Each structure stands twice: as structure tokens, then as C-alpha cells.
Simulated assay, not measured.
Amino acid sequence: MQLHHCRLFVLLLLITGPVLAQSDIEGSSDHPLLTRYPESIITWYETEKYFEYNLATGPITGYRYIAERDTVAGQVYRIFYDLPSTKEEVSIGEVYIDYKRAMEQAGMTILAEGLVPDGGGNKIGSPQWIGIALASQQPPGGSPASKLFAGTATSGGTFTLIGRLSQPEGTTYVVIYGERHSKDLIGYLVDIIEVASAETGRVSLDPDYLAGELESKGTVSIYGIEFDFDSATLRESSYPVLEQIAAYLTQHPDKNLYVVGHTDMPGTLEYNRTLSHDRAAAVVQALENDHGIATGRLLPDGVAFLSPKSTNATEDGRALNRRVELVLRPN
């Protein structure tokens, strides 16, 4: 998504000081929409052409459960910053207030916010809340960003800020999680999602992408497998996507998968469960018959509309819900 220059908001933080970028990891940069807190250094950076981001905006409502969630999808940028500082030099509250003020001045709608100075409880922005909110999209273990889940001084405080910027050119979400990791270090993760349609997923779909998603998450949603209306007949437009799945399976002969069909809401549960299963079975049959994938490596199933990615109240939401998922099976 290209942001039109005349509507581009560059968020300038209010505390002045030099920005030290010379120690940033290679290939990283601030997002054009959002600068860093002064003295911060990028220690982890990742961008993906199409990513389904699970956005939690409400309080904890059950055991490790947040009910108010939605899926926003598109180009994602994930940037983790280290801010070397003692409590006397910079407090976690100062970082939180500066980012909140900058987001508001840029015209963003704040969807969720929380500053927990003592790092306790389960309020929005607390360590427990952040862990649940990020459970399905934690940064890789061992990466500098994983320290967000292993603070040694959570009593130094944590925070969360989630904002949405709506423009004629498109919608962008900004999500920030921060904590005082130790007496000498603040760490904060900035996730920026530039919303785009599900079809963008075809760009990222290749064997390496599939391998990365399945290795890190155990599942991957596939968009671009299309069927005739109300049918399990595959359209020709699906063939390039099936070729990429077959390439992954050929390159990873030790991997076996469930192929799971998902539908949107219209129709009865029984009808959609049958349709979703039949569509998954059609995918398995095509991979076996047309691409030589051994029988038994793929098992089809269908769950109808019981596991939505988004709301069924809008066409964009229904498009996200109509999908095929690949799920790793234990060997």
C-alpha cells in the first residue's frame, strides 16, 4: 500500500535528542509513518508482504483469553527497539506518553491503551495481557525481541498502545508493546500493518514461505485456492497456488499435513461443514493426482465457519474466512 505524500503523517516524538541509528541491525529501518524514541536502536526487524495479524483490543475475559480480537491482514513491519537507559534517565511512562501523544496528533484513533507502571495485574498493557495478546505471533525465540516475554524487572513497568489511521489510500494499524526489561534497558516492539486484500497473499506464497509459517506456527492460511460457486470444483486460477504447495511437499518429504477447508457464514452448519470438507478433499486429490504427492501424506477435513479469521458482517471479513489451511501432522 502506498501512502499518498500529501496525507502522509510522520509521527514526531516530542522529546528532542539525537537518533542513534549506526548500531541498527543490517537491513532495518524505521517505518516512514513512525520514528523511534531518541537513543533507541533496532535490534530485530522483520517485514512480510502478507501477514494475518491477530489484533487484541479488549481486556482479559477468561483463562489466557481475550474476547475482543480481530484479524487485520496486509503488509506487516515488525521492529524491536532497545533503549538503553536507567529509570532516572527515561521512565517507561515517558516512552508511553510520547508515543500516545504522537499517534493522537497524527489523527489516529486509539483502539486500546494501557500503562502499568508496576508491571502487575492483568489490565491491558500488563505483562500477562501482552503475553496473551501476542501468543499467536510471538517474535522468534532467541531473537532480541523475545526478551519482551522474559523481563527481569517487570516492576519497572509495561505498556500497550494500539491505533488506527484511516485514509482514502487505505487503513494502517500501529501496535506498540513495551517494557522495562532491566534496570538499564527498555525494550519495545512496534508492529505496523498496512491493510491489503487477501489476494496479496499470493505474492508471498512459495515453498520457503510455507516452510517458515509451518515451522514457526504449525499452520498456514492459504488464499488463492478458488472454487466454483457453492461447489468443490477447483478453478484454474488455483493451479499456481497448488504448484507451490506441491513444491513445498516435494522439498520436505518428511512433512505430512492436514488440509482444512473453511467457509464464511451463509448457509447451515451442516451444509458448510460438508462443503468445506469436500473442498479440502478436492485440494488433496489435485495434489495427489496432478503433482504426484503420495497418498496418505495429506488428510482432508472441514470445519465450516467455526474458526473465523474475521467478522462475517463485511465482504472483506468473509473473504478472509473463506480459505484453506495447512496444519502440520505429527510424524
Rank of each mutant, 00 (worst) to 15 (best):
Tyr53Pro: 03
Ala56Gly: 14
Ala56Trp: 06
Ala56Thr: 05
Thr57Met: 11
Pro59Val: 14
Pro59Tyr: 04
Gly62Asn: 14
Gly62Pro: 00
Gly62Asp: 13
Tyr63Thr: 12
Tyr63Ser: 14
Arg64Asn: 14
Ile66Arg: 09
Ala67Pro: 02
Glu68Arg: 15
Val72Ala: 07
Gly74Pro: 03
Gly74His: 00
Gln75Asp: 07
Val76Cys: 07
Val76Met: 08
Tyr77Gly: 03
Tyr77Trp: 12
Arg78Tyr: 02
Arg78Ala: 07
Arg78Thr: 11
Arg78Asn: 12
Phe80Leu: 10
Tyr81His: 09
Tyr81Ile: 01
Asp82Gly: 01
Asp82His: 07
Leu83Trp: 06
Leu83Ala: 02
Pro84Val: 08
Ser85Asp: 10
Thr86Pro: 03
Lys87Glu: 15
Lys87His: 11
Glu89Ala: 12
Val90Arg: 10
Ser91Glu: 11
Ser91Ile: 01
Gly93Ser: 15
Gly93Arg: 13
Val95Phe: 02
Ile97Arg: 13
Asp98Ala: 14
Tyr99Met: 12
Tyr99Lys: 07
Tyr99Leu: 10
Lys100Leu: 15
Arg101Val: 02
Arg101Cys: 00
Arg101Gln: 12
Arg101Ile: 00
Arg101His: 10
Ala102Met: 13
Glu104Arg: 11
Gly107Gln: 07
Gly107Asn: 02
Met108Cys: 13
Met108Ser: 10
Thr109Asp: 14
Ile110Arg: 08
Ile110Cys: 09
Ile110Phe: 00
Leu111Ala: 02
Glu113Phe: 03
Glu113His: 12
Gly114Pro: 00
Leu115Ile: 03
Leu115His: 01
Leu115Met: 04
Val116Gly: 00
Pro117Cys: 03
Asp118Trp: 06
Gly119His: 01
Gly119Asn: 12
Gly119Ala: 08
Gly121Lys: 09
Asn122Leu: 13
Asn122His: 09
Lys123Phe: 07
Gly125Glu: 11
Gly125Gln: 08
Ser126Ala: 12
Ser126Cys: 10
Pro127Lys: 04
Pro127Ile: 05
Pro127Ser: 06
Gln128Ser: 03
Trp129Pro: 01
Trp129Gln: 08
Ala133Ser: 10
Ala133His: 00
Leu134Asp: 11
Ser136Cys: 09
Ser136Trp: 07
Ser136Thr: 15
Gln137Glu: 09
Gln138Met: 15
Pro139Asp: 12
Pro139Asn: 10
Pro140Arg: 13
Gly141Asp: 14
Gly141Pro: 10
Gly142Thr: 07
Ser143Arg: 04
Ser143Ile: 02
Ala145Ile: 04
Lys147Leu: 11
Lys147Met: 11
Leu148Met: 13
Phe149Lys: 03
Ala150Trp: 09
Gly151Ser: 15
Thr152Ala: 14
Ala153Leu: 11
Thr154Asn: 14
Thr154Trp: 11
Gly156Tyr: 00
Gly157His: 02
Thr160Trp: 00
Ile162Gln: 01
Leu165Gly: 08
Pro168Met: 10
Pro168His: 05
Glu169His: 13
Thr171Asn: 13
Thr172Pro: 00
Tyr173Arg: 08
Val174Asp: 02
Ile176Asn: 01
Tyr177Gln: 06
Tyr177Ala: 11
Tyr177Gly: 05
